[in-house]
C-alpha cells in the first residue's frame, strides 16, 4: 500500500518536471518569434520632420486647404504620400492648421462642405460638423475637436509637423 502511495507522488514529481522542461522548450522556441512579431508595437514611432507647406502670405482668414508631399518609408516600401491641412489665421493673427481627418471615423472634412453650414467644417460621411476653430458641434457624430498640427514659421514659410489631438470640449 505504502509503495503505491510513493508511486503516485513520484508520478506527480515527474509530471511537474515534464511540464517544466516542456515549458523551457516552448519558451526558448517562442521567445524570439514573439519578440519578432510584436516588434512594430515596441518600435518608438519616429516623430516626423517639419515639412514646408505654404507661404505665410498665402494664408488668409478663410480656411484654405494646403497639400504637401512627404516621402513615406513603410518598412521595405518607400512612396510619396500627400498630406493636407486646413489653414487660416484667426482674429489674433495666429495661424491655425487643422487636420482634415474627422474625429468620428476618419473621413476627410471640408470647409463649407455643406451649403447649409457655410461657416463650418463638414464631414460628408455621417454629417459631422465642426466650428471654424475645429471644435466639434454638439449632437453631431464626432466627439472631439479636429487635431491641430504642430507648426512653426521660418523665413515666411509655414512648416507643419504631426497632428496633435486636443482635449474634448
Amino acid at each position: 500500500m505504502s509503495e503505491k502511495k510513493q508511486q503516485v507522488s513520484r508520478r506527480q514529481f515527474l509530471n511537474y518536471t515534464l511540464t517544466g522542461v516542456g515549458g523551457f522548450m516552448a519558451a526558448s522556441m517562442l521567445a524570439p518569434m514573439v519578440r519578432f512579431a510584436i516588434d512594430p508595437v515596441l518600435k518608438a514611432s519616429a516623430g516626423g520632420d517639419m515639412q514646408a507647406v505654404a507661404d505665410v502670405s498665402e494664408i488668409t482668414t478663410e480656411p484654405q486647404r494646403f497639400e504637401w508631399t512627404v516621402e513615406q518609408v513603410d518598412a521595405w516600401y518607400t512612396s510619396d504620400v500627400t498630406h493636407s491641412a486646413w489653414v487660416y489665421k484667426n482674429e489674433n493673427d495666429e495661424i491655425v492648421p487643422l487636420s482634415p481627418v474627422c474625429k468620428h471615423l476618419g473621413c476627410q472634412v471640408n470647409w463649407a462642405g455643406n451649403e447649409d453650414y457655410p461657416d463650418q467644417f463638414y464631414c460628408p460621411c455621417h454629417d459631422g460638423r465642426y466650428l471654424k476653430d475645429g471644435t466639434n458641434v454638439p449632437n453631431t457624430p464626432p466627439d472631439a475637436p479636429l487635431d491641430l498640427f504642430e507648426y512653426e514659421v521660418k523665413d515666411g514659410t509655414l512648416y507643419l509637423g504631426q497632428p496633435v489631438p486636443r482635449e474634448e470640449v
Binding site: 524570439p32 519578440r35 519578432f36 516588434d39 518598412a75 521595405w76 516600401y77
Partner: peptide, 23 residues
C-alpha cells in the same frame, strides 16, 4: 519586387529577425 526587400528588412530592421529567419 518586394520579396528580397522584405527579407532584408526583417533581417536587418526587425528585432530578432535574424534569429527567426536563422531558425
Amino acid at each position: 519586387e518586394n520579396a528580397w526587400r522584405s527579407v532584408y528588412y526583417l533581417q536587418t530592421e526587425v528585432a530578432h529577425g535574424q534569429i527567426v529567419r536563422g531558425m
